[in-house]
Design a protein around this nucleic acid. Structure first.
Lengths: 341, 341
DNA sequence: ACGCAATTTGAAAGCGCTTTGAATGGGGCG
DNA sequence: CGCCCCATTCAAAGCGCTTTCAAATTGCGT
């Protein structure tokens, strides 16, 4: 069933039917209702390619899938994509995935821009200085950045306030009397990791607590890495009495490492982890429940989708900046620093 | 630069230029070369939407992203997507991602079929009896299944020989004198997990070794789950002397659990894990190197992409069946059963 | 009643490509 | 030398939708 046929059935012109379907105002309410009803009845579905050709829009947004690094980081990325995709689906916008090997990532973006198959792209996990912003600006390909990076080009971004989140978390631990606090972080070249470390250091610095570099570690945000770093930290003497952890994945490993070492979470060692709110991984339901800095990465994806839509509607990227506050949720995994530790 | 302009520049008709560009035979070699050169020089890029409209093809293949279950299974899925996408990219075919909550997965496929935005879809991680095959057959949406399921509808699939893989692996352990062998598997409703268990049971059965159900476990294929099951197994008395593990992710956890228990891999406990060949997770480089049943899931993605292309070219889905043999790679993690265990 | 503006509808011209069917020119053959 | 066939090329007709511009209808004030 194509538009022409539908129009024929209704005894109307394609023009009117098209307008009725797309919500243009110059159609009478009665006609619109009639058209919508008929469209439903005949299961009319506009042909996307035709629409795209006529409007000059691809109706799709691109995302690059790094295929040779960080695959273990995926749960975070996929969760973000889930939020992004769910929101875009409402507007009938596709999300098209371009796999790219890390080394020719730049080439990938060039290809995407040249291919004109997407109206915009989403950038994730930016580095502290990320060349992609300049590149896409030059290519004229609209984009929304999830995270932040230094750049003098005005561009759209949404980020969570990692620095404050970890500052607050560290402060909370300091308030509880902890002074030997470890940080298990993502790779330091990522902005979010740098921000978290900065917040952490500032909190300690303001209280005159020296940061012990042996207790700062960075790596892939996986269970295993969490385990290894925690194990290493706990073998130091004196060992840290509290841990700040960048991901719930890592926290799982950290938790097991403590148990292996015969230490009790929330008593012998306190922990606050960053919680991206995975549906299958509830910090609240763990035993003990884990204190977290919490911010739904899926919600961020949803919002980024909206921002992308606004961008395509013509909004100036330079005006699109959102910095989300992060909740600090205190639960059983944090307790006063043990006395004689 | 559009086709018409390019044709104008060359003093040729659109027809000829289009044919030259798309490799049709009725263009003289000289003309073709001239056209290709000009296209390059003017950075000509065909408009995808126009081409899609004219050919009636979406130029895209769909993949559904389960957003509320199995996200931890993602590394496997994403690795598969990477292979799929890389191959499809060569043919300028997009991969579009449709996020779907598990409960309305069926609705998602209906929506995808109705929207006509993709020419085919890829099905992953099939259940033993998977309703999607019947659904898509009825909807008339071509698809390729990665894995297998019972269905009387002829359909295209590619799978690895999980049953034989685990039979061989189990046989190898039996040859080494192991009789108490544990199986740490993916969820049993997935076909691949069922096949692996079947292969495992057959091998033991043929040697008259009874399978101890306490040593069979299934769960998400993550590090953590591997750790927990292994820990549980090792606490039994007598404990298993060997383990068959469905994923390298799980194997990492299993390995740590052994270490925690003071046991040495390859001596006190042997292990063979299934290796999907993640670029960042090399079984060969571990200490000790891990024996594996090996089959690159990325390569499978690549091949599925090719099969999908053939499907779209008109090949009968009923003729597309590929069952890949799986290598058994023996390394240091397997050794003779300990004497007095 | 009449004229004018506002409302509603329609015809037709694209959007940029593919593909059908026809035209052109040159070469081989009798 | 004339004819037929093949290799090339082209003009034009779509593909299914959006959108411009014009036409038809309605409503209103005077």
């Amino acid at each position: 069933m194509k538009l022409k046929e539908l129009a024929g059935q209704l005894g109307l012109s394609q023009t009117t039917v098209s307008r009725a379907l797309n919500g243009y105002p110059e159609v009478s309410a009665a006609t619109r209702e009639r058209v919508l009803e008929a469209a439903r009845r005949f299961h009319y579905r506009p042909n996307v390619s035709a629409r795209r050709l006529a409007t000059g829009r691809a109706g799709a947004i691109g995302a690059v899938l790094q295929t040779d690094r960080n695959l273990l980081l995926d749960p975070h990325y996929v969760e973000f994509l889930a939020g992004l995709g769910e929101r875009l689906a409402e507007d009938e916008i596709d999300i098209v995935l371009s796999p790219a090997r890390g080394h020719d990532e730049i080439a990938s973006y060039r290809r995407i821009a040249a291919a004109t198959r997407v109206d915009a792209v989403i950038l994730s996990s930016p580095l502290i200085e990320d060349p992609r912003v300049a590149l896409l600006t030059e290519l004229g390909l609209p984009f929304v950045l999830h995270g932040r990076t230094v750049s003098n080009r005005p561009h759209a971004w949404l980020d969570i306030d990692n620095e404050n989140a970890f500052r607050h978390a560290a402060n909370h631990l300091l308030d509880l009397g902890h002074t030997r606090i470890g940080l298990i972080n993502g790779h330091a070249h990522f902005t979010y990791a740098a921000h978290r470390e900065a917040g952490f250091r500032q909190a300690l610095g303001l209280r005159g607590v020296t940061v012990d570099d042996r207790f700062i570690a960075e790596g892939y945000m996986t269970d295993e890495v969490g385990y290894r770093f925690t194990e290493r930290f706990l073998n130091e003497r004196p060992r840290p009495t509290a841990l700040l952890v960048s991901s719930m994945m890592m926290a799982l490993g950290a938790f097991r490492a403590m148990r292996s070492a015969g230490l009790e979470l929330g008593k012998d060692v306190s922990m606050i982890a960053h919680d991206d709110v995975f549906p299958f991984l509830s910090a609240a339901r763990m035993v003990p429940p884990v204190s977290t800095t919490r911010s739904s990465i899926r919600a961020a994806g949803t919002r980024v989708a909206e921002l992308a839509t606004e961008l395509l509607a013509g909004r100036d990227p330079g005006t699109i900046h959102e910095l989300w506050p992060v909740d600090l949720v205190i639960r059983g995994s944090t307790g006063p620093a043990p006395k004689g530790a």
